[in-house]
Amino acid sequence: MRFLVVEDSGTMRRIVENSLNKIGYDDVVTAEDGADGLDKYDDSIDFVITDWNMPDVSGLDLVQQLRSSDSGGEVPILMVTTRSVREDIVTAAKAGVDNYIVKPFNPQVLKEKIDDVLDGGGEA
């Protein structure tokens, strides 16, 4: 399974990638912001993990653009963000995010959410 991790913080990008490796997912493409994420997204991506707060093209923008595209309409999307106001989470859900992780997180939560999105069949 190929992941696209979209995160503007270099530290968080590496931590998410490390967490994915730890829970058994080694095929990870990284993008530095929403625009880079849209550039790097293609049909080979099976799962998108994105931050929300990023300059220019935010994670929410990324989700909305993917959902309105032919190729990204169905791709699983997990948002990993510090934003945790109820209205924000509802907004993310309405935009098409499949599940939501509040930072700081741990790899176990990441695994649980990925599994949930993959309908419980997410063993790597």
Partner: peptide, 16 residues
């Protein structure tokens, strides 16, 4: 868009 003004390290489990 660039940052979350409410970002915090506290109460993550409750917010989750």
């Amino acid at each position: 868009a660039a940052f979350d003004p409410d970002a915090t390290t506290e109460g993550a489990s409750d917010r989750q």
